[in-house]
Design a protein around this nucleic acid. Structure first.
Lengths: 191, 191
DNA sequence: GTCTATATAAGGATAGAC
DNA sequence: GTCTATCCTTATATAGAC
């Protein structure tokens, strides 16, 4: 793997673990096994390298999410698959955690990939919900965009709760709670 | 206000804005209008001061949440009030944001107030849900703890989505989505 | 209690040799 | 392309005067 690639990979790992403000060029170089010169040869500086790393991470996350959402099954089953897909819960979301970084939120350029990723996933989920409404699997009064936002928020908030308690249990509980609200019930059952 | 109090207040503000790793003693002192000596006289160091600040913030947030959750109204209305209470959405949650700080998650002492705050709010909401089930306002198959986790996660995740897009809209959408799933429907309506 | 001085390390970047 | 040397600033803390 090229030095440039190793620098990007190290930056991605550190951004995930420690965020932007908590990640120093020195730490990146050590992890990548490179010297100062290499980094400043390939990239203009820390923000430039971070941008490359963030874009890569965002693309990968989007691809993973779309892979699950475009899978087989009914609309409910696809949303369920998205919510239940394997995650390293205690590490948190490599994209979502960036929103807590003041320097990233302050930069339109660094924030853009984060914004775009959530936006595309939300649109995809919203479409699935609308599909489910047409098929009668979801109640007609539900709004696709709103449900999609709730689904994404449950995931992102689940990471927060899990990290607060040091256990993935809270993440799982939140997901199960949302699924219990979303689950279609057959008409033979009284509500 | 005493110097010690001003130091705590400045720290609370900075922790909210920039997190633990992003907050330097120097910045705290400047904001508090104090010198180096004052800080190290009243506190053992940055972690000690941060702990005092976090405890204060956690207590205040808990009090605010309980104030709303213990208010008047049906169980659904009280949860609705909690979700719709005024928030400075783009600033994020002063407690939740701490979970993205590696140094805080790594310290049992610094993480404890965060964990405790979420735990107590979750219990309170869970109790309200169980109450609503008894009254027939919520479906009997819902689990109080799980719904409570979903409610908290929607809020925490809403902050993440809002900060990603630079607008409170995503927060509001997620909350409305969850409320539309949670809202009691009268039996005259067909599902 | 509060201040200034000082100390050591780290953050972030540039210069120039190879 | 990569390395080392060097630079200036900030982070975090201690010492000791007032």
């Amino acid at each position: 793997m090229s030095t440039s690639e190793r620098l990007i990979d190290s930056t991605r790992e550190l951004l995930w673990e420690r965020g932007y403000v908590g990640t120093s060029p020195k730490a990146i170089l050590e992890r990548a096994g490179a010297g100062q010169g290499s980094m400043y040869h390939h990239f203009k500086g820390k923000p430039d390298l971070a941008l490359a790393a963030i874009r890569r991470t965002a693309e990968e996350l989007l691809a993973t999410a779309e892979g699950v959402l475009d899978g087989p099954g009914t609309p409910y089953e696809r949303i369920e698959a998205y919510l239940l897909r394997e995650r390293d819960v205690l590490r948190g979301c490599p994209v979502g955690r960036l929103t807590m970084d003041p320097d990233i939120v302050a930069s339109d350029e660094l924030r853009a990939p984060v914004d775009k990723t959530f936006d595309l996933i939300r649109e995809r989920i919203a479409g699935i919900v609308e599909e489910g409404k047409e098929q009668g699997q979801f109640a007609p009064w539900l709004d696709g965009e709103e449900i999609a936002a709730a689904v994404l928020a449950t995931v992102q908030g689940g990471y927060v709760l899990a990290r607060a308690s040091g256990s993935p249990a809270a993440f799982d509980a939140g997901v199960r709670g949302l699924l219990s609200l979303l689950a279609p019930r057959d008409n033979t059952r009284t509500r």
